[in-house]
Design a protein around this nucleic acid. Structure first.
Lengths: 204, 204
DNA sequence: GACGTTTTGGAATACTCATTCCGAAATAAA
DNA sequence: TTTATTTCGGAATGAGTATTCCAAAACGTC
């Protein structure tokens, strides 16, 4: 009972030694690298820098921590994409920059983690409804962001109108997913550049 | 010692109760559905229809069985693609049919297993050199099959020559990988049709 | 500084995992 | 049928798993 009755004054106790957000960032990296089934609670204890009890106390259990990590990653990724699209001079430039940045990040990662969202989709989407929901939200948001950018691009004449904007948005999303898979085993930039170049040609 | 010395006559013993190939087919399905880390030896004992000791006796251990399953799957998939390309009337028709067949298989699978090769690439390629080798061989063979078909298509004037054949082959491979990821959480045909349609438009 | 509460580290628990082992059953040739 | 050998089923092993528990340390308020 943290409150005293009568004169209601709070009795505080020991404060948390760690920053929950920072721990979550570390958890993301671990799950991202080794997957859900590939990560043990011991791995997390070793990597998060907090004790087992603090972990369970703060994040309930492994599954809850995983989903929370995934949601956090999804939110950050979505914001990044939206900001990039907003700040770019036009729709085509936005998509070009996004593809290039994605490949840069993928290639630059020595651990070859790929994309946390894609990794989760492959490992768990068909067996874990909770994870599936996060994935579907992410797919939806991504598609919608591309869709709106492409519609604008088509209105301004920057992007061809032979294909409808929805199809183009899905096509771009699909290309990105493919890149994120290949980055798991391939590191040669030329390989990715070929795909980016060909993909962008569809918009002309 | 199965051989007697002197007059070299073989002494035979009990024969295996199961067909190794058939067991391997079952193993493929189980690993394909649940992944390497998600599959326990108990799952395999239950699913393969042979005893634990027969499993270890025939396939050494879990990892060996997994790699053998993956190799078998890879070989069958490669043959299927090559046959399809050979039998199709032209390069463009071959690629179109391949994309459509792939999506049909993906959507038709109630378990939403996706592609065993892609699943393995995501789960293990960056941590398991043995698996990585199988993946890379598969990627290479697939790209090469597309490359040769596309070169022919370009020579016959069926496929545009603005992009080089290597880039187009990689682009098609990448599209397929994307589809195989999305099939893990999406089942609406329209979604996949949009991507196929847009992808094929690149060849015109 | 003392009290009441929370956090913390690490031991303890209960379970599942991959792998090994062993005795009994099966089989082909002698 | 006997013999030599292998397969087979299931129990046994030992390491690794997620989770719980507890006593001691930490801290804000009194």
């Amino acid at each position: 009972m943290p409150f005293k009755t009568g004169r209601a004054f709070l009795i505080m106790a020991r404060t948390k030694d760690f920053d929950e957000e920072e721990v979550l960032r570390k958890a993301i990296c671990i799950f991202w690298n080794k997957g859900y089934n590939g990560t043990s609670m011991q791995d997390l204890v070793d990597g998060l820098g907090i004790s087992r009890s603090s972990m369970y106390d703060t994040f309930t259990d492994k599954h809850t921590l995983y989903v929370k990590s995934l949601e956090r990653y999804q939110k950050a990724a979505d914001e990044q994409v939206c900001n990039l699209i907003k700040s770019a001079p036009g729709a085509k430039a936005a998509i070009k920059r996004l593809l290039e940045l994605t490949v840069n990040d993928l290639i630059g990662d020595d651990q070859q983690k790929g994309c946390f969202m894609v990794n989760a989709e492959i490992e768990l989407a068909s067996h874990d409804d909770c994870v599936k929901d996060v994935i579907c939200r992410s797919v939806q948001q991504m598609e919608e962001a591309f869709y709106m950018a492409i519609v604008k691009g088509q209105q301004s004449g920057e992007i061809q109108t032979r294909q409808d904007a929805r199809a183009l948005a899905r096509f771009i999303s699909n290309t990105i997913k493919g890149l994120q898979v290949s980055a798991k085993s391939i590191k040669e930039r030329a390989f990715f550049d070929d795909i980016i170049k060909t993909t962008l040609s569809v918009l002309d």
